[in-house]
Simulated assay, not measured.
Amino acid sequence: MNIKPLIIGDLIAKVPIIQGGMGVGVSLSNLAGNVAKNGAIGVISAAHPGYMEEDFEKNTLAANLRGLTKHIKKAKEISLNGIIGVNAMVAMNNYIEHVKTAIEAGADLIISGAGLPLNLPEITAGSSIKIAPIVSSAKACKLVLSYWKKHFNRTADAVIVEGPLAGGHLGFKKNNLDNDIVNFDKYVSAVIEEVKNFEKDFDKKIPVIVAGGVFTHEDMMRYLNLGASGVQMATRFVATHECDAHPNFKNAFVNCKKEDIELTISPVGMPGRAIRNKLTETLKTQRVKITKCYDCLIPCNPGTTPYCISSALIKSVKGDVENGLVFCGGNAYRIDKLLYVKELIDEMMGQSLAQPEIII
């Protein structure tokens, strides 16, 4: 099968891969820029992109919006104006401000999940930015796209269907996860069929991208053969030299075993997949004291939440992988070494490995 470019409106990625957005600080400008430079779509996470700014602790929102702008512009420079997206979680406070900042900074695409992005067309109205909801089922897809059609006469530029092997927050119930894993390919086919209805209504192509557990060239080809237009990968991009996270974070992926990967508690109310460590073991029996609230997630109540997810993610990305939260995909244990982004993309495209050209 000839691998076709991923076309999202007037955006054309010669490699049909989206690098998944990973916060806090795991996918910023260096990773996203190098992914886009190599023909795929690089994505910056809007979850605390300003955590390294000097005033982050005192003025978190301002630091994050400034950081998001800096990283989008830097990624564009690295990629020679490649395609750069921003992943913005619906569950985050100041969601609207982050989306509008991404538009102003020159991002090409907004990817939005961790809730239903029902008002995303309204927030992005008047701009040329592309919008792509993340869904876990045909039912969720129909709900979002029907709402957009009714209220905004607008549809998605792409739809990402994310499966139960994904890292981080999952849009699936913990007690049915094994069944969802087995049936995920059926869910993908159902979303593709659902999207066709809206393609007819709006007379436009709406590519479906598959995320969650995509690990090999063969995985990608299976989904392309099912009718998807591309795949989204996050976990494998962590184990790259260009990833923005601390080396300890990357090595946690390289060194973990299958039995180290487990579902843990999230203040958002969703199950989350992470690498077992001191923090996840502690959370099985007690809360972790919260000393500061970053006002990051709408569903979070500092008085009752088991731990501060922002603090936990910041610790891990800075290298404290025992006391921080290390989100990962279900296949993280299959990683055994670090690659350059170009090497990974070549592997996914079924090409022989070549010497990469990178900017760090």
Rank of each mutant, 00 (worst) to 15 (best):
A190H: 11
G9F: 14
E199A: 04
I78L: 11
L263C: 07
G171L: 09
V254Y: 12
M349S: 11
H246S: 13
D336T: 15
H48R: 15
P356T: 09
K337D: 08
V161L: 07
I8D: 06
P164M: 08
G67D: 14
I360Q: 14
P356W: 10
N251A: 02
K257C: 09
E357G: 13
K292F: 02
K318M: 02
V182D: 13
V317G: 00
P121C: 01
P16M: 11
V86K: 05
D295N: 15
E193M: 07
K342E: 15
T264F: 05
V288R: 12
A312Y: 00
D346S: 10
I290S: 09
N197A: 05
V288C: 08
C243S: 14
C141P: 06
V238C: 03
K257D: 15
T282N: 08
A63N: 05
I359A: 10
V195P: 12
K174D: 00
I123W: 10
V191F: 10
L65I: 14
G126A: 10
G106L: 13
E218Q: 09
G9V: 08
V317E: 00
S146P: 05
V195C: 04
S311V: 00
L263V: 01
E77G: 01
Y187E: 15
E281I: 15
E242K: 07
I309E: 08
Y147L: 04
I131S: 04
L11M: 14
S229V: 02
K200C: 08
I78E: 06
G272F: 02
N248Y: 02
I209G: 06
M233G: 03
A102G: 15
V90R: 09
G82Y: 09
G113P: 05
E262D: 11
T216A: 08
Q19V: 09
V288Y: 04
S45K: 06
T305D: 12
I41Q: 14
I360Y: 11
G23A: 03
P271W: 00
M52V: 04
R66D: 02
H169N: 07
D201T: 08
E262I: 15
A274H: 03
L338A: 03
I206R: 12
E194C: 12
T240I: 06
A47G: 06
K205N: 14
K318G: 00
K76H: 07
T304N: 14
E259Q: 12
K258M: 14
M348A: 04
L80S: 15
V161W: 12
K74S: 10
L263P: 07
V208F: 11
D55P: 05
A102K: 08
G126T: 00
T304A: 13
K100L: 10
